[in-house]
């Protein structure tokens, strides 16, 4: 019998400080047993419990794409007990990964459509995974135009800029990067994500938007999209709530009758509109 609580053992392969304030680090994890890497069959949008023996578990979105190989990438904000311990761990250290958990973005359903990705702050992680996956030659032709709108407070708080510039150069994506306030030497957009979304004004025709960001960003992005004719079933959001089991049993991450861990974390705006705002 498979034990859904038993993490796969992994070794930290690499740790990179991801932002100028050092509040985010990106961890590359390598499976100790190669058969576990095969069993860990995931798609962008899913998450995993990062498991540190003696400390606990934290649910984190998977930032790597399965098209990148067996190693997993997680960019982790130092917030609580487990993530603080993780920030003090080094390459070579042993930990665990339990997953993949939750549902990916609904790639089958959005086949053939234009994809508008809207990300704010470090919520961009699973959308990095999504972009890498969409741009892979096996998948790119199955989707229409791709637009990537991403903002952070300052240039130094933007994640993954190196790979984002590669997407830009490839000419396969329209990229809009923004920071909150003017900074000397910054020649891209300035302003909050919702303002940039209004400026870009992505067409809702045959399109879906994948949105991941802080609640305030989502709240202010919504009216802008409504105004230009986006409907609730075209807007796909990724939610988070406190979790423990990750498999819909322990009872804490529910939004109405749905567990974010098992039934989410991906929900459409239409689904969320019918649920209590307990997130």
């Amino acid at each position: 019998m498979i034990n859904p609580y038993l993490p796969y053992p992994v070794r930290i392969r690499d740790v990179r400080v991801a932002t100028e304030d050092k509040s985010l680090r990106t961890f590359e994890l390598e499976f100790i047993n190669s058969e576990d890497a095969r069993a860990f069959d995931y798609l962008p949008g899913q998450f995993a419990e990062l498991s540190i023996a003696g400390c606990g578990e934290a649910p984190i979105g998977i930032a790597s794409s399965p098209t990148e190989g067996d190693n997993l990438l997680f960019t982790v904000f130092r917030a609580g007990k487990v993530t603080s311990r993780l920030h003090n761990m080094n390459p070579g250290d042993i930990m665990g990964v339990r997953g993949p958990l939750g549902n990916p973005y609904p790639f089958d359903k959005i086949r053939g459509k234009n994809v508008v990705i809207i990300a704010g702050g470090y919520a961009v992680t699973t959308l990095r995974s999504t972009m890498i996956w969409l741009l892979h030659p096996d998948n790119r032709d199955n989707f229409g135009d791709i637009t990537f709108i991403y903002g952070a407070r300052t240039p130094g708080m933007l994640l993954y800029m190196q790979v984002i510039q590669e997407w830009e150069k490839s000419g396969q994506v329209e990229v809009y990067i923004t920071i909150d306030r003017e900074v000397p030497g910054w020649d891209r957009h300035v302003g909050f994500v919702p303002q940039i979304v209004e400026k870009v004004s992505p067409s809702p025709d045959n399109s879906v938007a994948l949105i991941c960001g802080p609640p305030v960003m989502i709240r202010f992005t919504q009216p802008g999209l409504d105004k230009i004719g986006w409907k609730g079933d075209q807007i796909i959001l990724s939610m988070e709530n406190r979790m423990k089991c990750g498999i819909g049993i322990c009872g804490r991450c529910n939004v109405g009758p749905y567990y974010v861990c098992k039934d989410g974390p991906v929900f459409t705006k239409v689904q969320l509109d019918m649920l209590p705002k307990e997130y």
Partner: peptide
């Protein structure tokens, strides 16, 4: 009632 918490002990 079956909600539970998970904790590590050493």
């Amino acid at each position: 009632c079956h909600c539970f918490d998970i904790q590590d002990e050493t």
